[in-house]
Amino acid sequence: MPERSGRQAKFFETDQAPRRDRYQVPTPRLIQSVPGERSSSIDITMVGVIKRMNVLRSILNIRLGPGAAVLPQDVTRIHMEFAKNIEDGHMGPRKFFKENLPRLKFWNPSVPMIVNRTANQHGPSTLSLYFREGGTGATEFTMPSSSTKGHAKAPEPVEGERVVTIDMKNRRSEMILKDFMDTTGAVPVTPTPQEEAELKDLAELHKRSEIDREIGRKQQEARRREAAMLAQARSEAAALKAGD
């Protein structure tokens, strides 16, 4: 998130020091926790800055990747309809909704993208694209908001609008995206060199966390084994006592 200097009115002030201009990538450390020592005495206030920043860096994935594309001006709105679960060919549309639609929404915040999820597993699965005809001015329309109960049916096109419907049933999300890009003529967003470097950093971080997770898993296993042995010994002792 590059911050540009602009004269904007601050609508609230915090008492913090001015932040450094360039965010420095923190070097991940292998923190070895002491078994049995849980974070009981640590403040439960808010998660630490570095940890939160690492999570936040994953928002790169919403700026870049399959689906990150700028739609042309004549796309007025998008409507999706599919069932809640994957049975009967609804996996592709679900993946498209989960992985590609957020990216499209990020790059095209003004285009309404309405999702209608239904309980009817054998129902249709469609992607409706609405286009402005003839490049005339803004088209006025009313739009239902997204629903998880099947209330947001695809609206009829208004005057000066045409609809292209793509059937998504039994298709993979990649194919749906390809069809989408071909039909709309959207321009994919390519990462800048800076973003590419950030992506690389992020991949490295994930690799590191894999190692860390393995260490943690082993420690936890050892802790559990010890606890189980203790519990067993205790129960045996109790049984002996009861036997006497």
Partner: peptide
């Protein structure tokens, strides 16, 4: 808003 696309507002 990008994260919450398709959710009931």
């Amino acid at each position: 808003r990008a994260f919450e696309v398709g959710q009931s507002p």
